[in-house]
Nucleic acid binder design. Structure first.
Length: 943
RNA sequence: GCCAAAGUGGCGGAAUCGGCAGACGCGCUGGACUCAAAAUCCAGUGUCCUUAACAGACGUGUGGGUUCGAUUCCCACCUUUGGUACCA
């Protein structure tokens, strides 16, 4: 065969691997196992993006490498196919979602196979498979059957939930409702994010800036009865278990911050006339801190109980229940207007713009329980109903938001924390003129005076706990997970609502028997959202919608699960994809889990990983999995940007404007002085030159040109299609290039000439071994069965050493560079020992498997190299007998010296002192000190 | 604003522990081969000074510091990218 032709070689080997089931994984690992997982893709209509193969190639290299090292490797692939985009695509193309999803999956599969990934395709699954979502529904029922025992910090079967005597006394229905309230999956009337544009409610995590993450539609808040998952119960464990994971500190922190655990205190402020305060105080002293909030108090949460003496007013959220009861008649009109306004505002409007504080006075007062003074109660939307108790004590002297609010409404500011003596603003802070949020010494605070912030916090909590006014409390930013969606293309809930004789729901719910799973989606002609919160499944035929069991009539739950559901546990199903009696076989689970390496995009750093960890912990508590955490090592691949573009700016009349004088306006770029709209002009590479730190127009250096790589997008027209790259350069070139671009985790721009460069390398490898003039795959004559020379051995063994080390540390770019050096070296050698050539092909095989197989065959092997032993290196052969050592004077490199590699420090120094070039430098100077690092360098400090 | 990551030639990037800055690739320049081109092979390629060589000076965002020696460690600042946004 004359030339390297991937168009022939690649399909040949793909077919070979498929027919021979080369990458079939054993049911159970033999010896060491390694589970290498990709974040499975969403099979969109657009097909594979060049970002996908980046992570997939990295994991494939790992999988192929560890197979050659003799481990049992589990390396599966599947599809996350339920969810909004698939449904929107289906509506747009007027195809049923199941049909369009299957088409998209077929296309993705074709593309993935075209790239030669070594997945065990027999384990492929899609979250939309009935046999898959049967078990997603089963896990939901497990959540439904579990309550969280706070004492044990553990999920337990609902049947073990202690029922209080007073509830038990009220009968079976009361017990049933009590249980429902404690389940990990529960229904709640909650203020939800309703998105009319998508026709569904969204999780907090799916709302960004008051708009839907998907589609950027406005989101409103409205009360709706929804399914919730009690993820907050696992908040502490989700934080503390991060510790043992091999994730970057950044990602861990992101998760911990998202969960947002804070410790502080809940404090009751009585809403009573000042004259009755002491009476209230003495009643409280005699009792425990009440679990539910009494009618005569406003309960707040604070992380700064040490500043209680500085609380000069209170603020409650507009949705707070006491708004109705405490507002005075004089204020009621203003209050009503403010609250109505807030309700109509989306979160976007609330947080938009300059965040100027707004609010209204209720007319009511509460008593500060430490000073006994009445302080006014205000309503403001900067206090959120969903966090803490929905009410705060405002300490304007020591909280930025309270300070701004106090300034806006002329409320008193009382400093109670003294800043350090050398604080520049000390006097102003003490006078209440500037807000001070740092730690300091308590002042104007009764018994706390003189204590540091932490000590003051501890003391005030002790005192108030003793007098029944406060207690220590923990809060999370994380909210319970809103789990239902009003869309068609998702897993139906396996839940039945009991109906009375008149067909009205009784409020009693029951789980669908696990034997009846899966609950399939009904056939629907019209599944489009209609902008009302009634789910599309409600339009199903009665035969689907209504069920009679033991003479009782039920209506099916018509909400569906969010897209996250299926991806919360797919890694478990890969272990045992066809099991019909359990989510996964216990022994297999124990043998294969946890996932040893998990690679995917950083966009899943919070949501997917948090949700999956939560489900995994519930499965763990209930004894279905053997590890508390599913993903041991996590790596986020960086984004691949489009090619670098040079952009210049011109006025409407065609005059160039330097990029230094432009800024981003509302619709595009404008002149920073005149605000005149500018046109962005793409400038050719050849018309640009570098000047200082910037690029400028070659014809006019005063015009700065913007140079950057942009995100790939259809609108910009810079999307690179993997199909086209494979057609032009081959899959091995695409794989190799994506690994050669730079570190896996870095964001990096695409470069077509770069792809050409690695293709060039593969051509060189080919010519190094294959005689391009002969018929068939004949080796070049220079490959001979001889022992390598010492120099050749050095190259061979140091390459094996470096490539092995780099592959294990995921430094693929440097591993490829080492192989290029190997090829550059042996291209010049007229005798190429067969051993060395075989080693190179094995080293290269995880990166460019098709070509490697082809050359391996030409080298006379009949089997696939997929399970060939990885080359071993002899470290003693990697070392040269003589090395070049730099000689420095005062830390500056002056010359170099050839010495035997094993020279001692003394020998090195002697050799250096005798070096003639150095003598010139030492002339007339005195050597004060000599620093000698054997094998590294010599440095003389001279005067 | 806050959090995270990052700033090295014309470009992507490399440099286990603080020890020869710029591996490898792209691009560019020159040469060989060719009628010619492509392909291939060979050589060169951080900036500046000097006619040139030898050599020298400078050089890892900026300014300081620690050190015999700093891309690497410390402090301050600037810029870029990503995330996040009133969580009391």
């Amino acid at each position: 065969m004359p030339r390297y032709n991937p168009a022939v070689i690649e399909p040949k080997w793909q077919l070979h691997w498929e027919n021979n089931k080369t990458f079939r994984t054993p049911e159970m690992p033999s010896g060491d196992k390694v589970y290498i997982l990709d974040m499975f893709p969403y099979p969109s209509g657009a097909g594979l993006h060049v970002g996908h193969p980046e992570g997939y190639t990295a994991t494939d290299i790992q999988a192929r490498y560890w197979r050659m090292r003799g481990k049992s490797v589990l390396h599966p692939m599947g599809y996350d196919a339920f969810g909004l985009p698939a449904e929107e695509y289906a509506i747009r193309t007027n195809t049923p979602p199941r049909v369009s999803t299957e088409q998209n999956i077929a296309n993705f599969t074709r593309q993935l196979k075209m790239l030669g990934f070594s997945y065990d395709w027999d384990r492929c699954l899609a979250t939309t498979d009935r046999e898959y979502f049967r078990w997603t529904q089963w896990i939901f029922l497990l959540l439904f059957d579990t309550w969280f025992d706070l004492e044990q910090q553990k999920g337990r079967p609902i049947s073990e939930l202690p029922i209080p005597a007073d509830v038990a006394a009220k009968g079976e229905d009361a017990v049933s409702l009590y249980r429902d309230k404690h389940r990990l999956a529960y229904q709640d009337e909650a203020l939800v994010n309703w998105c009319p544009g998508l026709g569904t409610v969204l999780a907090n995590e799916e709302v960004i800036d008051g708009k839907s993450e998907r589609g950027n539609h406005p989101v409103q808040r409205m009360p709706l009865r929804q399914w919730m998952l009690r993820i907050t119960a696992y908040g502490d464990r989700l934080i503390s278990d991060l510790e043992g994971l091999d994730w970057t500190p950044g990602i861990k922190k992101l998760q911990a911050d998202w969960i947002g655990r804070s410790t502080g205190a809940e404090v009751d402020f009585p809403i009573v006339p000042a004259s009755e305060f002491s009476k209230w105080q003495s009643t409280r002293r005699g009792q425990a801190y009440p679990e539910s909030i009494p009618v005569d108090v406003l309960r707040i949460y604070t992380t700064r109980p040490d500043t209680l003496y500085g609380a000069t007013y209170m603020v409650i959220a507009p949705e707070h229940p006491v708004v109705k009861t405490i507002t005075t008649p004089e204020q009621s009109a203003a209050v009503k207007q403010y609250c109505d306004n807030a309700a109509f505002k989306s979160d976007r409007d609330r947080t938009d713009g300059d965040k100027r504080k707004t609010g209204v006075f209720t007319g009511a007062y509460a008593i500060n329980p430490v000073t006994g003074k009445p302080i006014p109660i205000w309503i403001a939307d900067y206090v959120l109903i969903g966090y803490g108790t929905g009410a705060i004590m405002a300490v304007p002297a020591h909280d930025d938001r309270d300070f701004e609010f106090a300034k806006a409404f002329q409320l008193p500011i009382q400093c109670v924390v003294e800043p350090s003596k050398n604080d520049a603003d000390r006097e102003t802070i003490l006078a209440g003129g500037v807000c001070f949020t740092g730690d300091g010494l308590a002042i104007n605070s009764g018994s706390l005076d003189g204590l540091g912030t932490d000590a003051a916090k501890a003391k005030i909590i002790d005192e108030l706990t003793a007098s029944g006014v406060a207690r220590q409390a923990i809060n999370y930013k994380l909210r319970d997970w809103l789990f239902s969606r009003q869309r068609f293309w998702g897993e139906p809930f396996p839940i039945l609502h009991e109906l009375d004789a008149a067909g009205k729901p009784t409020g009693i719910i029951r789980a669908v028997d696990t034997q009846e799973l899966p609950v399939d989606l009904p056939q629907l002609e019209d599944y489009k959202p209609h902008g009302r919160p009634e789910p599309p499944l409600a339009k199903a035929d009665d035969s689907w919608l209504y069920v009679t069991i033991d003479g009782k009539r039920y209506r099916r739950e018509t909400n569906t699960m969010p897209q996250w559901a299926g991806s919360c546990w797919y890694y478990l199903r890969f272990i045992d994809p066809t099991n019909t009696s359990a989510i996964v076989d216990r022994a297999k689970e124990k043998a294969w889990m946890p996932v040893d390496l998990y690679i995917g995009g950083a966009e899943h750093a919070v949501l997917h990983l948090l949700y999956a960890r939560f489900w995994h912990k519930v499965l763990f508590d209930r004894g279905y999995v053997s590890h508390a955490e599913p993903f041991h090592k996590l790596v986020n691949q960086g984004m691949i940007l489009g090619e670098v573009e040079y952009t210049g700016f011109q006025t409407a009349s065609g005059e160039w404007v330097s990029a230094a004088h432009t800024e981003k306006g509302e619709t595009g770029y404008v002149h920073s002085k005149t605000k005149e709209a500018l046109n962005s002009i793409s400038v050719a590479d050849s018309d640009v030159t570098k000047s200082g730190d910037n690029f400028v127009l070659a014809s006019d250096p005063s015009i700065r040109i913007d140079s950057r790589a942009h995100k790939m997008s259809k609108a910009r027209g810079n999307v690179v299609n993997p199909d086209a790259v494979v057609t032009e350069y081959g899959a091995d070139s695409l794989r190799l290039y994506e690994m050669f671009m730079g570190p896996l985790e870095a964001t990096k721009p695409w470069s077509t000439t770069g792809v050409n460069g690695v293709r060039n390398f593969l051509d060189r490898v080919w010519r190094l071994m294959i005689d391009t003039h002969a018929e068939g795959n004949t080796l070049v004559d220079s490959i001979q069965d001889v022992e390598p020379t010492a120099e050749q051995n050095r190259v061979i063994h140091s390459t094996i050493m470096a490539v092995t080390r780099d592959i294990e540390s995921l430094s693929f770019n440097t591993a490829i560079a080492r192989m290029m050096e190997f090829v550059n070296f042996f291209t010049k050698e007229s005798v190429r020992p067969r051993k060395g050539m075989e080693a190179l092909i094995l080293l290269l095989s995880p990166y460019a498997p098709h070509m490697a197989e082809e050359v391996w065959q030409a080298l006379g092997n009949t089997d696939s190299l997929a399970y060939q032993a990885w080359p071993v290196f002899d470290e003693s052969l990697t070392k040269a007998s003589e090395i070049e050592v730099p000689l420095q004077i005062n830390g500056k490199l002056r010359t170099k010296l050839m010495v035997p590699a094993d020279s001692t420090a003394e020998q090195l120094e002697q050799a250096a002192r005798g070096h003639e070039r150095l003598a010139e430098w030492l002339d007339g100077k005195q050597i004060v000190k000599a620093i000698v690092v054997p094998g590294r360098m010599v440095n003389f400090v001279v005067k």
